[in-house]
Design a protein around this nucleic acid. Structure first.
Length: 360
DNA sequence: AAGCTAGACAACCGCGTTCCG
DNA sequence: TCGGAACGCGGTTGTCTAGCT
């Protein structure tokens, strides 16, 4: 492993910071300001890596940091922003004065993920579990056996299989689940990634999104991210991310009169009739089709205009799966899907014994 | 009282990006 | 333009503590 030069010394101290060390950092920063962190340890008389100093300052010593626990408003904002832009903690934290990305990340990992799971919502896709299960069952046409549940993400499993887990070291637990990872990835990537496109389209119906750009997370450009943030944060009176029914959760944005009716996260039925996204486009544009293939005309998004106020909590996934796999007609698509399924079958057969004995 | 467990949060690690000579 | 250093970010791990058995 290559360490940065500032951390290369063997005598660099690690672990928790003492009050003395904090005082040295504070003294240094008050005198010299922040910046050039690699020089800080030497100048401040610390046996710490510069990176570590910066982290200590950013996450703990900065005077503008809030110490009190997260408010319900902050909590809702985090959930909304996570739904909109994913785990971009630094961006989310920028919308929460006095909070650091580390704070937000920790709060998400320890509280919010669990909370959403208990509500029956997958914290990764922000989609009701029941719908994910149904959609996932539809993909492969495979029976929903225990094995299938074993391939769902851990939070989801915890919700379905409420049973005390024997404590085990984290690494061991992680390793034990290795056999599930591929199928998890199959699911979460296919679901979450195109979902970003859905967010973009549904949250900014008037935004000229180029629908021929492959809808991966990274293609969600900065402008759109900022717009997403703006939309979410400006909805000053939103009443929250409400669980309505197992297939239906909503976000009520009451900041505009026309949005008094809660905008609703698409149900499976709604999504199947929503023409805004074509899974086919997503799959094929990347490589399989020449650009501007005539049967993949730009989508007409006029239907979105009727629900401009709907800040659709990104569903992300299952709608895409229903779209794509059910509507697939071209041979290239079916071969792509078939290849994925073949690989998955192969994996299941290879790890059959493990999958029959889930690690939880 | 001791051991175990889970929650909270601080800190570290690795990697990608940006800056600068 | 290139390469190394610095920085920033997200994921992961470590540590402490309170509650429970």
């Amino acid at each position: 492993m290559v360490r940065p030069p500032c951390c290369d010394k063997l005598n660099v101290k690690k672990g928790l910071w003492s009050e003395e060390e904090d005082a040295k950092i504070l003294a240094y920063v008050s005198k010299h300001g922040t910046g050039n962190w690699t020089a800080v340890p030497k100048k401040a008389g610390l046996r710490r890596c510069g990176k570590s100093c910066r982290l200590r300052w950013t996450n703990y010593l900065r005077p503008d940091l809030k110490r009190e626990s997260f408010t319900p408003q902050e909590e809702e904002l985090i959930i909304l922003l996570h739904a909109a832009i994913g785990s971009r903690w630094s961006i989310i934290a920028q919308q929460l004065p006095g909070r650091t990305d580390n704070d937000v990340k920790n709060y998400w990992n320890t509280k919010l993920k669990k909370k959403l799971s208990e509500m029956g919502i997958d914290p990764v896709t922000h989609k009701p579990f029941s719908q994910i299960l149904a959609d996932y069952g539809n993909i492969g046409g495979l029976p929903k056996s225990r094995t299938r549940i074993g391939s769902l993400n851990r939070d989801m499993k915890n919700t379905f299989l409420i049973k005390p887990e024997p404590h085990q070291p984290r690494a061991a637990a992680t390793q034990g689940c290795t056999a599930n990872i591929n199928s998890n990835q199959l699911m979460t990537t296919t679901m979450a990634v195109p979902g970003m496109k859905l967010v973009q389209e549904n949250m900014f119906p008037n935004n000229n999104v180029n629908h021929h750009v492959p809808a991966d997370c990274d293609s969600l450009d900065l402008l759109s991210q900022l717009q997403a943030i703006k939309l979410v944060t400006e909805a000053s009176n939103y009443t929250g991310y409400q669980f309505v029914s197992p297939n239906h959760y909503s976000l009520s944005l009451s900041s505009t009169p026309s949005s008094s009716s809660s905008s609703t996260c698409s149900t499976a039925a709604q999504e199947k009739t929503d023409p805004a996204f074509s899974w086919r486009d997503f799959l094929l544009e990347d490589a399989l089709l020449p650009p501007e293939s005539e049967d993949i005309a730009p989508q007409n998004h006029s239907s979105n205009e009727t629900n401009n106020n709907n800040a659709v909590v990104p569903g992300t996934g299952s709608e895409l799966l229903s779209y794509g796999f059910q509507a697939s007609s071209s041979s290239s698509e079916s071969s792509f899907v078939a290849a994925m399924l073949d690989q998955e079958k192969e994996m299941f057969s290879e790890f059959a014994n493990l999958l029959e004995d889930p690690c939880y």
